[in-house]
Every structure is written in C-alpha cells, then in structure tokens.
C-alpha cells in the first residue's frame, strides 16, 4: 500500500458493487492534478468506461459519459467551482480500442490535451499505445476480473 499524498486513497482495491466503485473513484479524484495522463487497462467488460463515468460524477461533471470507442475522444468541462478547487478545468476521455498505431493517436489531437496543465486525460486501452507515458504525469490503473464477478483496481 503506497500513500499517494491523500490519506485514504489505496492503490489496490477490490470492488464488489457500484458503491465500492464510487468510493474508489471519489478517492482517486482527489489525487488528480492537471497534466495527469491516466492509462486505463483492462479487458472488454472490465469496467473502464464505468470507472470514467463514476470518476466524472465525483468531479461534478453533469454531461453523460458514454463509451468513446467510436467517437475516439470526448471532452468534459468541470463545473467552475470544482475546477477552482482541483485546479484543472477539463477531462479528456480517449479510447484507443480502434487505433493501431501511435500516429493515429496523435492525429486525433492527443498531444493537444495530454499533459496540458488544465486537463486530466484518461486513456482506455492505453497498453496499445506505449508512448502515452511520455505525456504529462503518467499513471496507470489496471482493472482485473475476480472469481465472483468482482473487479480489482490497481494503480501501479
């Protein structure tokens, strides 16, 4: 268990219910800083998009968050009050599922947002794009399936 600067945030959590996930997302939200690039790694159905949905809710984002597999990238503005507190103003949600090469990631405008001081960037299927760790403060969350349908969230 590594302390990431926030008392309650743990880097290894077993999530059995959506309530558990909300708790983890809320704690994780507190560790976010502008410029963070978070790789989300986990198989189909692991809950990457669900995690982004719950994290966005924890950040006060009202707009519906859906899977960006087809649209590739979506931007969400934080409410002004939250933005002042957390000191970043937008979340960039990217999905590399359909991408083959890193040049494609650059072509959708990744570098415009990743690492920008006012932006937190979340990248689903980041393992397909090893170069994302060059941007901003790179962090990685791995989601794996437990035996009884629970999920394990780990930050490396």
């Amino acid at each position: 268990m590594v302390n990431k600067g926030t008392v309650d945030y743990m880097t290894h959590v077993t999530v059995k219910t959506l309530k558990d996930l909300d708790r983890f997302a809320a704690l994780f939200a507190k560790t976010l800083r502008g410029g963070d690039v978070v790789g989300l790694i986990g198989d189909l159905g692991a809950g990457k998009t669900t995690f982004v949905q719950r994290l966005s809710a924890a950040l006060g984002i009202k707009k519906p968050v859906r899977s960006p597999t087809f649209i590739l990238m979506q931007l969400f503005n934080l409410p002004v009050a939250t933005a002042k507190k957390v000191r970043f103003r937008q979340v960039c949600h990217i999905d590399a599922y359909r991408l083959e090469k890193e040049s494609e990631l650059m072509a959708i405008g990744f570098a415009d947002y990743a690492g920008a001081p006012d932006t937190v960037t979340l990248v689903e299927w980041a393992e397909k794009m090893p170069g994302v760790n060059r941007f901003g403060r790179y962090r990685e969350i791995r989601i794996s399936f437990g035996k009884k349908g629970e999920r394990v969230f780990e930050e490396e």
Partner: peptide, 23 residues
C-alpha cells in the same frame, strides 16, 4: 432517451470481438 454506456453498434462489434471475429 439515449444509451447510458455503449451504443448498440458497439455491442455488436465488441461481442463479435469476444467471439474472435474481425473488425
């Protein structure tokens, strides 16, 4: 109303992927 998560077309594509079909 709209989908809360995946679109129907994505559901088709991703279950196809789980079955080992191409994109």
């Amino acid at each position: 109303g709209a989908t809360l998560d995946d679109a129907a077309g994505e559901a088709f594509d991703k279950t196809a992927k789980l079955m080992g079909l191409g994109y």
